[in-house]
Amino acid sequence: MENDTVSFYFNLTMFVNIGHYRYPAFIFCLLIYSFILSANLVIILVISREKTLHEPMYLFIALLSINSLYGSTGFFPRFLIDLLSDTHLISRPACFIQIYTLYTYASYEMTILGIMAYDRYVAICHPLHYHRKMTSKTLIKLATMAGIFPAFLIILCVSLSARLPLCGHEIQKIFCANWNVVKLSCVTTVVNNIYGMLTAIVTVFLPLFYVLYTYTQIVLICWTKSAEFKGKVLQRCLPHLLSFVIYSLVAFCDVALSRYNLEETNPFVAVMLWLELAIVPPVLNPLVYGLKLPEIRRHISRMFSWYKK
């Protein structure tokens, strides 16, 4: 029986025994998950039903909200069950499905933010060519690329890890992560390490550098313009820039923590840092865009006023 457990299950060891506090924690996380679902659904509904918001910038915001629903649904149901459970075993297929879901969610977030940076760059630096460059066909191509390319890279990465013979079953995390599984391998993992690094470069660092490049160009353009122009640019770009900075910081914390010796880390601090990736972007994205962009805020207010009547 023990051999079957080692072969077919992983044990998520970072769940801290919090006794009776598990129930308030469960209710708190359930409320957060409920807010993520409702807030992002409102953003999607408003953008889809209002024809005046059928512009590239707002459609990309809707994609961010769809991705938030995808990533949070891939994390929270299992996490909520584990909060109330005394054992935290997860089958190997379920573990690799969770890895695929969370890693594609993270990659989609970065690629969508990169495409949004391109949209802002064209709108501000090449306004006369904006409608010629950002056509419906271009939007479909960009959205398709943002969806298919990361998924292809991640599924190869997960497939390489799933083939490894493992000499253990304990994962020091509250969810399955590729690096933690690879560390359990009985054989060399050079191929996995190289491919994992290439995947990180393509899905994380290239969008990161591209966003930095586009905003450098935007700042240079704004430098010579009037205060009114700078104000309009700031109003348009600030929500995207906030989302990008927040997500980059959260992702950096997760990557840094996965390489750190967890025995020297407070378990509660480690759990809270891991929760940031699943909670902070899906919670803040609808707040940032819903409150900062007047067009979305106005339509949300109008929609709720209509429902009250």
Rank of each mutant, 00 (worst) to 15 (best):
L69Y: 00
F75M: 10
T265E: 10
R297S: 09
A151I: 04
I124W: 05
L220R: 15
F304E: 02
I218S: 02
H240S: 08
L53G: 00
H88V: 13
E50F: 04
Y100H: 08
S305W: 14
K137H: 07
S107Q: 05
R78W: 13
K225V: 07
A256M: 14
V283G: 02
N180R: 07
G196R: 07
F96G: 13
A177I: 09
S107R: 09
T52P: 00
C237L: 11
A151T: 12
V122F: 01
I300K: 05
R298E: 03
Q217W: 00
Y260T: 11
L160P: 10
I279Q: 03
D4I: 09
T52M: 05
L212M: 11
T138G: 00
M303F: 11
Y103T: 12
G114T: 09
W274Q: 15
H54D: 08
E264P: 03
F152C: 13
F35I: 10
N17Y: 12
S68W: 04
M134P: 07
W306N: 11
G74R: 06
L37W: 09
V288M: 10
A200D: 06
N17Q: 10
D86G: 15
V181G: 06
S301H: 14
I18N: 04
I155N: 08
F35Q: 03
L273M: 15
Q217E: 11
A94H: 06
M57V: 01
I296W: 01
S91Y: 04
M110G: 01
K232N: 05
S226M: 11
G231V: 00
I201N: 12
R297Q: 14
Y105R: 00
T104C: 13
R297V: 03
Y247V: 06
L41V: 12
L83M: 06
L128R: 12
F175S: 05
K225C: 10
